[in-house]
Amino acid sequence: MLCQNCGKKEATTHIKQIFGGEMSENHLCRDCASHLGYGDMLPGFGLNISQLLSGFAGDFDLPAPARETLRCPKCGASFGEIVSTGNVGCSECYHTFYERLLPIIEQTHGKSRHTPSHSSPVKEKEKTKEEKIAALRLEMSSAVSREDFETAAALRDQIKTLEGGETQ
């Protein structure tokens, strides 16, 4: 389906809205969605994340046999089902498929760690240098993809510093 706004690109964002007393569904491409203020996939507006999930599945998936057999012990969902529907099945899914969901979470929020509001500070595990660099790279690529070059440049410098420390 083509985007209703530009009529050129493939529509990936589907928005349910009420207009003129009728329910209407709007189909927009990623650029137009972002331009019109829907780029954030705000839930409650029926935006579909399965496109995004599918886009990532190829890069981050486990080898085929593991993909076939691995199911969430609590709800029975496979990663493939989560990808095709855009819906996570239960709280345990986040544990079972954590590594594969993480890039999606990164892509959506630009971050991958919760900042709790209450006094209980989250005790962050000490990461190895490789983990730190990997995390920074991920953050950098998502900064680039949202055209936040300032952040990307700062992250690149951080990565350089870390990598530089290694050679010394």
């Binding site: 996939m41 994340i49 986040y94 999606i104 979470i105 991958s112 709790p116």
Partner: peptide
Amino acid sequence: IGYLTQSPS
């Protein structure tokens, strides 16, 4: 990752 929701967003 905070409150666990049906949509990762």
